[in-house]
Design a protein around this nucleic acid. Structure first.
Length: 207
DNA sequence: AAAATGATCCTT
DNA sequence: AGGATCATTTTC
């Protein structure tokens, strides 16, 4: 049932730019227990100099500690009192950069995802950061854990060719001033599993 | 101690 | 367009 191979730690070499990692994560696989999906949408958050990043200005708090941890670790937080968002730390400890995973194409455990989400269309199970955490059963108890080992991990996929990757401004960061329009959101072009089609205001996967 | 605030999603 | 819902942060 498994057959997923954990992503090699060299994926997170220190000199690799977080935006490049965000692009390279497209087409890789996110696994938690019996559920798994192919990453089709990501956003890069560039640490202390990025006003949209939680660690902007070097801010620290107990919630943010995982973001200052080693690459390949998860930073998961609760948003709006009801949804969780999953980020992958991209840089060595002390350098708080990460990639927000925004959407997956469901691969395994479809019935579990359907039950958790209360939905019937697979295109709606994981099309959004809150949705995918709900469908995979992720919450902040997993924040700070490594995603390069265990039953919650990143696995090798086929990647996505450069010409199939689109970029657009990040979602929901209007507070970020001069950084709010930076095109650091990446989507697999034409994928029906992304949260919103770039350029459109409306959710793509909703009926 | 109290108030404000979300890297969202769902319903009207 | 507005409400749900609460951990975390900010303000008093």
């Amino acid at each position: 049932m498994d057959g997923f191979r954990v992503l090699d730690p060299s994926f997170f070499v220190p000199e690799r730019d977080t935006r490049e990692i965000a692009r390279a994560l497209l087409g890789q696989i996110l696994v938690h227990g019996e559920t798994a999906g192919r990453i089709v949408e990501t956003e890069a958050y560039l640490g202390v100099s990025d006003r949209a990043c939680h660690a902007w200005g070097g801010k620290r708090s107990p919630r943010l500690e995982p973001l200052y941890g080693p690459p390949g670790h998860a930073y998961i937080y609760l948003i709006y009192g009801m949804y969780h968002c999953l980020n992958v730390v991209t840089k060595p400890a002390g350098q708080p950069e990460c990639v927000l995973i925004r959407a997956l194409e469901p691969l395994t455990g479809l019935e579990i995802m359907a039950a958790r989400s209360g939905r019937t269309k697979a295109a709606q199970f994981c099309s959004g950061p809150g949705r995918l955490c709900r469908a995979l059963g992720l919450d902040r108890s997993l924040s700070g854990s490594s995603m390069l080992t265990g039953d919650f991990f990143l696995a090798e996929g086929n990647g996505v060719p450069e010409d199939l990757i689109g970029s657009s401004p990040r979602i929901g960061v209007d507070y970020a001033g001069e950084d709010k329009d930076r095109p650091w959101r990446y989507c697999v072009k034409g994928s029906p599993f992304v949260s919103r089609v770039p350029g459109s205001k409306v959710k793509s996967a909703d009926s």
